[in-house]
Simulated assay, not measured.
Amino acid sequence: MCNRIASFALISALFSPEASAHPHSFITLVTTVMSENDQLTGLKMQWTMDEITSADLLYDAGDAKPGSPVWKKLAAEVMANVLGQHYFTEFWHNGKKVTFNNLPPEYGLARVGHQAVLTFVLPLAHPQPFKGQTFQFATFDPSYFVDMSYDNSSDAKLPKTLASLCKISVKTPQPNEDTLAFAQSLDKADAPPEDMELGKQFAQQVILQCQ
């Protein structure tokens, strides 16, 4: 089996040559906050890749059945890339960044129609008491090669245990005209300066407020 998923930057190259501006690939997010014993413990994530981005993954999987060694190997390869980028996620509490465990307690990769879907649990390194607190998190590719976003605000979810205690909302940024023009000017051979964090300027912010 050929490994075509060395990095998310490579995934972007799967797009057609006509693509002339960032982003080149698209991942749709669904995230559920996880809690236990009055503390936030992590995030359960579902990433659905667009059909073109999914194509090579699904080609490598072939006709393998769900849960087979083929799918497990592909899932491990994709997850290793995600871990190498700190889950492509930042989580904040009181202006301080919350750290994550280096290994997810569970993850998997599956085929849904013509798309590849990665699911995993992002564990907080230290559970956070949530009563009376506000948290903020965002999932994004800093280079903005890959657009990672929620189709609907309802795709950021609360479990039933938190539904009466917390509110969750998705805030979509509005980058200025200069930032938009710069992103549109980049082609597939270009990469924005690392310190610019272009993807962060387009990243949706999920805000969790608990009473």
Score class of each variant (00 low, 15 high):
Lys44Asp: 07
Asp155Glu: 12
Gln128Ile: 13
Phe202Met: 09
Leu118Lys: 14
Pro192Cys: 13
Leu14Ala: 07
Asp195Trp: 07
Ser35Thr: 15
His126Thr: 13
Pro127Asp: 07
Val70Lys: 11
Thr31Leu: 00
Thr139Ser: 15
Lys200Phe: 06
Ala64Arg: 04
Phe202Tyr: 14
Ala183Trp: 06
Ala116Gly: 08
Gly84Asp: 11
Thr161Ser: 11
Thr179Ala: 03
Ser149His: 09
Leu186Thr: 07
His24Val: 12
Gln211Arg: 15
Ser164Cys: 02
Gln85Arg: 13
Ile168Pro: 07
Val30Pro: 01
Pro129Leu: 05
Asp50Lys: 09
Gln39Ser: 03
Arg4Lys: 09
Gly132Lys: 01
Asn81Trp: 02
Lys157Gln: 14
Gly199Gln: 02
Glu177Phe: 07
Leu10Met: 09
Leu198Asp: 00
Phe182His: 05
Leu29Lys: 14
Glu36Cys: 04
Gln136Val: 08
Val82Met: 13
Cys210Asn: 05
Asp147Asn: 10
Thr99His: 11
Val33Phe: 08
Phe100Trp: 01
Leu109Tyr: 09
Leu122Gly: 10
Lys167Leu: 07
Val117Leu: 10
Thr134His: 13
Ala138Gln: 14
Tyr59Arg: 14
Ala183Tyr: 15
Ile27Met: 12
Pro69Thr: 13
Ala13Gln: 03
Leu118Phe: 09
Thr89Phe: 04
Leu83Asp: 03
Asn81Val: 10
Gly95Ile: 04
Asn152Val: 01
Cys166Glu: 03
Leu198Pro: 00
Ala75Asn: 04
His24Leu: 12
Val112Met: 05
Pro23Ile: 04
Ala64Thr: 14
Pro193Glu: 09
Ala110Trp: 02
Val78Cys: 04
Ser153Lys: 12
Ala163Thr: 07
Phe140Met: 08
Leu103Tyr: 04
Tyr107Glu: 13
Ala138Asn: 01
Thr134Gln: 14
Gly113Lys: 15
Thr161Glu: 14
Gln205Lys: 13
Leu14Lys: 06
Phe140Pro: 00
Leu118Cys: 04
Ala189Leu: 08
Pro175Lys: 15
Ala64His: 08
Asn81His: 07
Ala189Pro: 01
Pro104Arg: 12
Ala181Gly: 07
Phe137Pro: 00
Asp155Asn: 12
Leu198Ile: 02
Asn37Pro: 00
Leu40Pro: 05
Phe100Thr: 11
Ala80Cys: 02
Asn37Glu: 03
His114Asp: 08
Leu83Ile: 11
Thr31Lys: 05
Phe140Ile: 14
Leu186Ala: 10
Asn37Asp: 00
Gly84Thr: 15
Ser149Leu: 12
Ala80Gln: 14
Met34Val: 11
His93Ile: 06
Glu51Asn: 06
Ala156Lys: 04
Ile11Glu: 07
Phe140Cys: 05
Ser35Leu: 09
Glu197Ser: 00
Lys157Ser: 12
Pro173Val: 10
Leu14Phe: 14
Asn101Gln: 13
Glu177Gln: 10
Ala189Thr: 15
Asp155His: 10
Gln115Phe: 09
Asn37Lys: 06
Ser185Pro: 05
Gln204Leu: 07
